[in-house]
Design a binder for these strands. Structure first.
Lengths: 413, 413
DNA sequence: AGCCTTAGTTCACTAGTTGATACATGGCGG
DNA sequence: CCGCCATGTATCAACTAGTGAACTAAGGCT
């Protein structure tokens, strides 16, 4: 079932996108190498790269001598072509970062949100002032777009609607509200787990994989599924809600209202509750993270802590096995603050449990790795959204996409 | 991350495919309507349909008067252009069917396999003789290709390898063996659940959906995931192994070697075992299917049977909820002989349990329906594989695919 | 200096889509 | 019954884009 007509123009766009993406991820490369890697003729490569260079999207990046012949001119995407902003709307604060095209961070601002102040108005205000602060040095003209990661599901449609129960949002038209607050840059809104997943795919443990699942364990439990190189979204962009799949039928109640969800066993809160019960007294530490750290520290000597962690690794392994059986990925990346902490300690155990629960064949095709990026990756991933639009279109997302837009991923609005 | 270079030829192929698919699924249509529906210009539609008509792929199918103007000429794919064969390799027998292009069955042959005779050699022999019988009337020249559905996972690569533990197959190079046995037609091998799912998508309860999951409950439990109109395969085509996802951590042992798999609760065998235990005595009936029918019949009067069925609907609902949370489909189709029987009786209950376990938002976007095709749909679905190749390429799969093949789905070999 | 090797560019050619225009076909009013 | 009009389909020149082959560029080697 083919989907859309194609014209000669789409052809050019596709090949521009192809060359630009190759240069972005594998650059710098010479025209000759580009020709070999993409299968395009040398003539076309010359032609298209010429066009891209004229638009200042790519620049020359030195020469490499070739054995005895004319040296190759290396080309690369110009990191200074423009900037992108990434916004991480979290449960406790808003983080705004400015990056160059190569996703090197240039400026960062964080705004705390008091627990009572997570309503859309307050958040939008925090985002806008954060953006203004971050852009103070450079000015908005150079910015290709703003990516926003939110802690909930995002319905991409004519209106971008955000549903985020943890901060009390229900069908919030975030793009519209940001526009109303004066943001005129192209906006890309996506789920935070998905943006973090994309960051890990581009720059972290997911590099090079076409099929992967990035698993995020923190207070909540989520996942980002990458299918054939692109974030899997399903029909209304709420795919990948791994945390609320049932792993113990008829089991423990979950904050989502159901029972036996993976999150009710694997989320930091649930793990600490089990530890508390097993221990018979409170766990030291004020915040969830401190308590979790205490649990990990205790594991060196306490059988109880060891048992709780092993149990948790078991649930994680079984949950991962489900992902392997259903999605048949090449790679599973374990991240999130609790997931990383757990993984650093018990990755072999997690691998074993996953192997015990998954089918032999798909399990054999999958490697299970730890995430490589820090916990700020949500903002980085959000920043990649405008870059992805640039690479997909093969052109600046600020320009009107001439011809039938073939955009995939989070749509600009 | 774009994937492949594009040339003008690809363009033509894509548009041919687009028009051919539209005509196949929504035809008969006039050129004018085609132009409107696909966005292609009238000129191109004329040009391409002319080419297709010359190749006898499409024919005229009557006129429709238009209010006051020249009547439209309706076009459609010619069902008589050629035939396709579908092969269902099951655990107990091999079924071979011949279809015309519109997938109307023309001939059917079944070969029983005695339980001891499921080794590749015997099966290949049964397939070859079945094909010969089915083709006796028409001859092989008209056949575009043979689709084969197998009860296991299919690794699509340079070699097509089949892993099917239930019939004792381990890395069987089925395509190569069929070739060695003298089959020279294009071959398409895929997992039986996936072919059945494709049949349901094309002609059954899945029609019109772009994101759906076809759930199959019989002795085993499987699923076919359709993402954006195409069967989701993952990195090595073994995605969708829903039956062996864990639904009760640490639960009942499963024949796959793991514990707590959905199949160990929802498979016919498991359901009957629960019924037997609850009842305290053997269930009447020789075969699994007869016993299952007895269970359903008993449910009108027996509390025990009712309870067992309700429990089963609960597991099914929770399993479906997991699919909804992970894949966010528009539609779930419940099929398989046990699934259909169960669904006919308890669909509302299944819907309710799914709703209780799934997140509200994705659940609200999903409808849960019963499969519409009979149990022979595996062969029908297998037969759609060559047709899909025809539609995807926009040309006869027997012809060498000129230019870089852009084939998706099960590759021909 | 001349030749070889490798990189990149130019150009004529081909494929393909499009808008404009021409042609075809039937209904309908006079 | 004839011409007009509306609608559907075909044709054609214009334009875009990718390709192979010939050509130019740039360096090393003898």
């Amino acid at each position: 079932m083919a989907s859309k007509r194609t014209t000669v123009r789409d052809l050019r766009r596709h090949n521009r996108s192809l060359l630009l993406s190759k240069l972005y991820f594998d650059g710098p490369l010479s025209r000759h190498e580009l020709s070999r890697l993409t299968g395009l003729s040398a003539a076309t490569v010359s032609n298209v790269t010429g066009e891209l260079a004229e638009e200042r999207l790519i620049t020359e990046a030195g020469l490499v001598e070739s054995d005895g012949g004319r040296p190759r001119v290396l080309l690369r995407v110009d990191p200074g072509y423009g900037h992108v902003a990434g916004v991480d709307i979290g449960e406790t604060g808003v983080r705004v970062e400015l990056f160059d095209l190569a996703m090197r961070p240039l400026a960062t601002v964080e705004h705390e949100l008091s627990p009572a102040r997570t309503e859309p108005g307050a958040v939008v205000e925090a985002v806008v002032s954060g953006l203004n602060e971050v852009l103070a040095g450079t000015g908005a003209e150079t910015v290709l777009g703003v990516g926003v990661g939110v802690p909930g599901t995002v319905e991409q449609g004519a209106q971008v609607l955000v549903h985020a129960p943890t901060i009390g949002w229900e069908s919030v038209p975030l793009t519209a509200e940001l526009r109303a607050a004066g943001i005129q840059l192209p906006l890309f809104v996506d789920n935070g787990a998905k943006t973090q997943g994309q960051a890990e795919m581009w720059f972290g443990a997911g590099r090079g994989a076409r099929h992967a699942v990035i698993v995020l364990v923190g207070s909540g439990v989520g996942a980002a599924v990458i299918a054939d190189g692109a974030t899997y979204r399903g029909s209304t962009s709420s795919a990948g809600e791994w945390g609320h799949t049932t792993i113990v039928y008829g089991g423990a109640p979950c904050r989502c209202g159901s029972h036996g969800c993976l999150e009710a066993y694997l989320g930091a809160e649930a793990v600490l509750a089990r530890y508390r019960r097993a221990r018979g007294k409170a766990v030291p530490g004020d915040s969830e993270r401190e308590q979790f750290a205490a649990l990990l520290a205790a594991a060196d000597r306490s059988k109880t802590a060891q048992h709780v962690l092993a149990e948790t690794a078991g649930y994680l392994g079984a949950g991962i096995a489900n992902l392997i059986n259903l999605f048949n990925p090449e790679r599973i990346v374990v991240g999130g603050w609790a997931g990383l902490a757990l993984g650093e300690r018990s990755l072999p155990l997690i691998r074993d449990t996953a192997g015990a629960h998954a089918l032999r064949h798909p399990f054999g095709q999958t490697s299970i790795e730890l995430a490589q990026l820090g916990l700020d990756a949500v903002a980085t991933g959000a920043g990649t959204l405008p870059v992805a639009a640039l690479l997909d279109q093969g052109a600046d997302p600020r320009l009107p996409a001439k011809g039938g837009a073939l955009r995939s991923g989070a749509g600009a609005a």
